[in-house]
Design a protein around this nucleic acid. Structure first.
Length: 570
RNA sequence: GGCGCGGUAGCUCAGUUGGUUAGAGCGAUCGACUCAUAAUCGAUAGGUCGGGAGUUCAAGUCUCCCCCACGCCA
């Protein structure tokens, strides 16, 4: 039995994510986790909310709540929505957990001991009115180069000149609008990533089977310009992991916290500690420490392309640099962006469908199927309502749903609500089993390689094969002359339903469950041998004709939703 | 400005290390069937693979130039 550690990029706490975020990490990770479990492998599937940083503080202030309270509430909201989409995390943690604080401080201490951290003094803008240092992008002013009045502290959007906040004329805080700013000296810790350049480059070069998207982004950061740069890993904020060297105070770093991108990936590990502390398991180290049983673990990370640099470079620096035997990622599956109806999803403009809204309109299976079967694997892809409607209606309602319907209703009307007796298999039956065997093996192969779209395509072909078979043998006409033969045809067709349910479960778990219930076949297993699986339901086995498994989306609904989600979420 | 990913049938997308008449699903047209959620199955039509030049016996697939879209960075 193989062991799979699977993590999805952790969504930022600030607000509800859109469908593009979902399909870029959590959903394909869930598909893979469900598949591996279905194959009898041991799985640890982790995710969390990423809670630190300035945006969380600002969002909390806007909501009029203390940031800790705000994060706790938003974590629950995101956890509930994740459940709604049937994301089967073993644990959905929080980067603000005590476990992550301690572990982050531990890693920082180790890195310092290994000589990979240096202290740097720099000048940053402090806002007296806001009572805080301001990140560059929260400062605006007049561009010294072109006179543009809303130039950002890091760059002028008008003339694209790269700026330092101190250069701006009449700078002001975009948080409060205050012009009461002053440059202050402050000390920060930098992670000496450049020291690790060679090691990282060798490691990336050894990954021949990783998606091009993953390796090309990593190589770009390794080789561009002067190569991989050192990176500040601390901030002058209140909300975050306090800077400590392991258990010890860090002289000169009082009142500072680690940068959100330093502690966020460490939460992958901390989440498994939270999992133990929540009483869901008793040994997290066998997943993460190669000296304590994790050497046989296969670790796969899922993420959108914007997260690739942190997972291919920064986090590995933390792992390598610690000098401790932590489990390093084996495979990084990255995704491009999903666009919405001719443009981008936009959180600020409320353009596109957000996770909570999606569930209000339709059950999660409908979204899971479309999103996964159109996952942006090799290039950016596009959501359109026409495509969504077509895919749901044709694939789910017509090909799969209607198959179940025609078979069960035919059986009920010609025989009874139980599997009929019937004769022996003929040529058509053997041919079907042979085709399905080939297709199931191909499906397994695609799923194991995380080829999401190809998997969906193969699964659909498996559904179609059932309709083809029925069309060929036509039990409705066979029945008139040879009821026994019609009975064996229908018996096989009935057996296809739990077979489909098991194979489809990673994509559409709810429909799968309800089909198994209707067919009274909750114990159905993965079809290692197709012929055996398809004779599981014996003559006399009672079932009930299921309700409509998937309903269709009407043209009116499609038009209504298209208008509803075109912009400006309230 | 630099870099990155792309530009393949009306639409959404596949096309391994260059190799026979460029593929899938949807949509369209025609036909078959009538058990079923006006469902299903089959067939057909539709592409000078962004443009140009080059390498090669052979290029959607490699090289160079250009155009377009998107993204990232400073």
């Amino acid at each position: 039995m193989a062991r799979h550690l699977i993590t999805s990029a952790i969504p930022y706490i600030n607000g509800i994510k859109h469908l593009g975020n979902l399909v870029g990490s959590q959903l394909p990770a869930d598909l893979f986790a469900r598949y591996q479990r279905a194959r009898g492998n041991e799985v640890m599937f982790l995710c969390a909310t990423d809670e630190h940083g300035t945006p969380a503080e600002l969002a909390a202030a806007k909501a009029g709540k203390p940031v800790a309270e705000y994060c706790a509430e938003m974590h629950d909201v995101q956890a509930r929505i994740a459940e709604g989409f049937r994301l089967s995390f073993d644990h959905f943690g929080r980067s603000s957990s005590v476990q992550n604080q301690k572990l982050t401080q531990h890693f920082a201490g180790r890195l310092a001991d290994e000589g990979l951290i240096r202290e740097v003094s720099e000048t940053q803008m402090y806002s007296n009115a806001d009572g805080r240092f301001l990140p560059d992008r929260y400062i605006e002013g007049t561009c010294p180069n072109c006179g543009f009045e809303s130039a950002r502290g890091d760059q002028c959007d008008n003339c694209t000149k790269q700026l330092d906040p101190a250069e701006l004329i009449n700078p002001y805080s975009t948080i409060s609008g205050s012009t009461d700013l002053e440059a202050r000296e402050t000390k920060h810790l930098h992670l000496r990533q450049s020291e690790m350049r060679e090691k990282l480059a060798d490691w990336i070069d050894s990954k021949h089977d990783w998606p091009v998207l993953t390796t090309s982004i990593a190589k770009k950061w390794l080789n561009d310009g002067d190569g991989l740069q050192d990176r500040g890993i601390t901030r002058d904020l209140d909300w975050g992991v306090p800077v400590m060297k392991g258990d010890e105070p860090w002289p000169g770093m009082e009142g500072k916290v680690f940068y959100v991108w330093f502690d966020a990936p460490i939460e992958y590990i901390a989440a498994s500690q939270e999992w133990v502390d929540a009483g869901k398991g008793d040994n997290w180290e066998r997943w993460w420490r190669t000296d304590k049983g994790a050497d046989d673990v296969t670790y796969t990370q899922f993420m959108g392309k914007d997260n690739v640099p942190f997972h291919t470079l920064s986090f590995p620096v933390t792992i390598f640099g610690s000098g401790e035997p932590w489990k390093l990622v084996d495979y990084i599956k990255s995704f491009n962006y999903l666009n919405y109806d001719g443009g981008q999803f936009s959180t600020s403009r409320g353009r596109g469908v957000f996770m909570d809204q999606a569930l209000e309109i339709l059950p999660s299976d409908y979204w899971r199927w479309w999103l996964l079967s159109h996952a942006p694997e090799s290039s950016d892809s596009e959501f359109t309502w026409e495509q969504f409607q077509g895919s749901v209606n044709k694939d789910l309602a017509d090909v799969l749903g209607n198959f179940v319907s025609r078979v069960t209703k035919f059986c009920r009307s010609k025989f009874s609500e139980a599997v009929p007796e019937g004769a022996e298999y003929g040529e058509d039956e053997l041919k079907l089993i042979e085709e399905l065997t080939t297709r199931v093996r191909a499906y397994e192969d695609h799923m194991a390689k995380m080829e999401v779209r190809k998997s969906a395509q193969e699964l659909r072909a498996i559904w179609v094969a059932g309709n083809e078979y029925l069309q060929t043998v036509a039990p409705w006409s066979t029945f008139k002359t040879d009821p026994d033969k019609a009975a064996i045809q229908i018996r096989l067709a009935l057996n296809l339903i739990p077979f489909y349910a098991v194979l489809s479960a990673p994509f559409i778990p709810d429909a799968s469950t309800s089909l198994l219930e209707s067919l009274n076949a909750q114990d159905a297993e993965w079809p290692d041998d197709v012929a055996t699986t398809l004779s599981k339901l014996q003559p006399g086995h009672a079932f009930t004709v299921p309700e409509v498994t998937f309903r269709k989306i009407t043209d009116d609904e499609r038009d209504e939703w298209q208008a509803q989600f075109a912009g400006s979420r309230d």
